[in-house]
Design a protein around this nucleic acid. Structure first.
Lengths: 340, 340
DNA sequence: CTGAAAGCGCTTACAG
DNA sequence: CTGAAAGCGCTTACAG
C-alpha cells in the first residue's frame, strides 16, 4: 500500500454519463444489461465505461436496490475439522465454481461447533447477505432456523431439525449408499462386519449407520459392532482400536468417511493385519484421503464437487426468484481399489 | 426462507432517532461510539436501539464513509491444496480469531494457482474490500503487485517478487528453522540426510532448502540428495520413492512440510524400513498432520495459528492508520516425537 | 428508448 | 453536546 492517500477516486456513474453525453439512468441501464437501450447509445456508453475503467460502486448499488450480492458460507464446525477434511475442500470447490458465473461473493462464516458469535448472528441476520449456504450442520444448531426464516438458505446434507423441514438441500441417499458399500463387503464373503460411524447428531452419521445395519440384516449377519467417530482421522484410529479389542474375529469394517478410514488403516498396519487379506476396509466419500495413503481405499463415491456446485446453483435460482427443486439427491457408486 | 416477501423492513437510523426523540446525527454518534454524547442521551438512544433491535445498514454506512468493512482472504492456490493442508487451517483459524474483535468480515477469494479471474480482480481492485490477506503466494503471482498498490495487504510468508519489497508480512525464519531441524538429524549421527523440498517458486520452499543445505555444509556432509514436492501428501510419497531409489544408503530425511512427511512415511513403511531405526524423519509445521498418522512426527514447529492472528492484527492496525512493524518474524522450535 | 427526480440509509463537516 | 443539511453513488418508477 505504497500510496494509500494519493489514489485518485474511482470514476462514478456520473462521470461516465458526462463522458458519453447521456443521463445517469442510461448508463445505469447499460451497466445492468437492460435491453431498453439503443445500439448506438450502448456503444457510446460502453466506450466511455471502457475509457474511464468504470467499476460500479457496490455499496451504492446495494443501498439503492437492496441487494448485497454477497452469500454467506456458514460452517458450524471447528476450523480444524473444516480444513482437515478433504470432503469440505471438494464442497467448497464446487460452490466457488457454481458461484463463478454470478456476481455474488462468498463470505466465510466459521460458526464454531456450538453456536455462532453474536457478531456472526448480527451479520447473517442483519441483511448483510442475500442468502446462505450451510455445510456440515449438527442437530444442535438451533440458530440455523432463524437464518432460514430470514434469507434463502441451501443446506449441504439433509437438515435434521424439525424447523428445517421445508429447507432446500442437496444430498445423497446416505443410507442406500452405505448399504451398497456394505453389500459389497458381504459379497466378498465377510461375516464380521463392523462400522466406524459418524457422529449421531449429523444426518450423514445417522443415515450411513442405518445403511450398514440394513445391509447386515438383509444378509442375516449381526449388526453389533459399532464405534462412533467424529469424521476425523484420529477418531477413526481410536475406533478401530476399540473394535479390534472388542472383536478380534473382525474381518471387515465399513467406515463412514475416508478420513476416518485412513486412521483405521494406520491402526490395522500397526497391528500387523493385512488389508484386505485379514480385514477389508470400505470407506465413504472418495475424497483425496482415499488415495493419499499407502493403500488405495475402496470406497463409496459421492460427487462432492458437484454437490457444492448444485448448492450454489440452487441458491442462485432462489435468489433470482425461481423455484428450483427443494431437494436434490445425487448419485453414488462404489469405487473399487485395494482395500476391499 | 418461508416468507421472503412478508418480512417487514429493518428499522433505520431515522426511526431510532424518532423513537429516542433526537436527531439522526446523534443516533449515528452513539452507534459509532463517539464520546461527544451526554450520558442521558446515550442511555435514551441505547434504549431505543435496543427496543427496535436496530442494526446499521452496511451498504449505507459504506457509501457514506467509504469503508467496506470487508477484508479479502486471497489464496493463490488450488482449492484442493488449500483445503488439503492443515497448515492453512491453522492460518485461517488464526485470522478469524484476529478479526473476531473487529467489525470486518472475511471474503474468501480462491485465486487458482495461476492468476485470478477477471471477476476476482475487479472485485479486489474495485474498492470492494478495505484490505487483503494473502496466503501461500508463488513467485508467478504478478497480480498481487497491483493489489498491493491499491489497498493495504499483509502477506503470510515473505513475498518473493521485487515489486513487493515493501510489503508487510509475517513469517518465520525458514532457513534458520530448517537448519535447526537438520542439525537435530546430524546430532543423531545421521550421515546421509536427504530433503524433500517445497516448490522452488515459494519462499517457504526455497528458504527451507537453503537451511537444509547450510546445516549439512556446516557438518561437512554432502547436500546432494534433494527431491522437490509441492507440499502435498502424494508428492511427499513420490519424492520419497525417488530418493530411496537414488540413494539406498539414506539414513534421514528432512521434509519441508508435515503433510509431505506423511506421504514419505507411508512409502518408508511400504518398503519395510523402520522409523527412525533405518531412517529418521524430520517434518516441518507441526500441524495436525504430524500427529494424525501411525507414527508421531518429530518436526519443526511454527506457530501457524499465531501467525494468522498476527496477520489479521497487522492489517487491522494498517486500516486504523497506524504504522505496525512491517515484518514480523515468529519463533520456531523442534518438537521431538517418534520419527527422529 | 431516454431523462429528471426522488430515494436508498448512513456519515460528516459546519453551526450553534 | 446537538441538529440541519449536504452528500456518498447508485436504481427505479414515472413521464415523455
Amino acid at each position: 500500500m505504497s500510496n494509500l492517500q494519493t489514489r485518485r477516486p474511482a470514476p462514478t456513474l456520473e462521470e461516465v454519463a458526462a463522458e458519453a453525453g447521456v443521463s445517469r439512468s442510461t448508463v445505469s441501464r447499460v451497466v445492468n444489461g437492460s435491453s431498453q437501450v439503443s445500439p448506438e447509445v450502448l456503444a457510446t456508453v460502453g466506450a466511455a465505461i471502457e475509457k474511464l475503467n468504470y467499476i460500479p460502486n457496490r455499496a451504492a448499488r446495494s443501498l439503492a436496490n437492496r441487494q448485497t450480492m454477497a452469500i454467506a458460507l456458514v460452517v458450524p464446525e471447528e476450523t480444524t475439522r473444516f480444513f482437515g477434511d478433504p470432503y469440505f475442500a471438494a464442497i467448497v470447490h464446487g460452490i466457488t465454481m457454481g458461484l463463478e458465473p454470478s456476481d455474488y461473493v462468498l463470505n466465510l462464516q466459521l460458526a464454531g461447533a456450538t453456536s455462532p458469535s453474536p457478531k456472526t448472528m448480527r451479520y447473517l441476520l442483519g441483511g448483510n447477505v442475500d442468502g446462505a449456504l450451510v455445510v456440515s450442520h449438527h442437530s444442535g444448531d438451533h440458530f440455523l432456523s432463524s437464518l432460514d426464516e430470514t434469507i434463502p438458505v441451501v443446506f449441504g446434507g439433509r437438515p435434521l431439525r424439525h424447523a428445517e423441514q421445508n429447507s432446500y438441500y442437496v444430498d445423497v441417499d446416505n443410507a442406500a449408499a452405505a448399504a451398497k458399500g456394505v453389500d459389497h463387503l458381504v459379497a466378498l464373503g465377510r461375516k464380521r462386519i463392523a462400522t466406524i460411524a459418524g457422529p449421531a447428531d449429523m444426518p450423514a452419521g445417522i443415515d450411513r449407520t442405518e445403511g450398514w445395519r440394513r445391509s447386515l440384516q438383509n444378509a442375516g449377519l449381526p449388526a453389533d459392532l459399532i464405534s462412533y467417530g467424529d469424521f476425523s482421522m484420529v477418531s477413526g484410529a481410536r475406533s478401530m482400536r476399540e473394535l479390534l479389542d472388542r472383536a478380534p474375529d473382525l474381518d471387515a469394517v465399513f467406515v463412514a468417511s475416508d478420513l476416518m478410514a485412513t486412521g483405521a488403516v494406520s491402526v490395522l498396519r500397526e497391528r500387523g493385519l493385512s488389508i484386505p487379506g485379514n480385514i477389508a476396509v470400505m470407506g465413504f466419500d472418495d475424497s483425496p484421503a482415499a488415495i493419499g495413503g499407502d493403500i488405495q481405499l475402496t470406497t463409496v463415491h459421492q460427487p462432492s464437487i458437484e454437490m457444492g456446485r448444485r448448492m450454489a446453483e440452487t441458491l442462485l435460482a432462489l435468489l433470482r426468484g425461481e423455484t428450483p427443486e427443494r431437494i436434490c439427491i445425487m448419485e453414488t457408486r462404489i469405487v473399487q481399489r485395494e482395500s476391499a
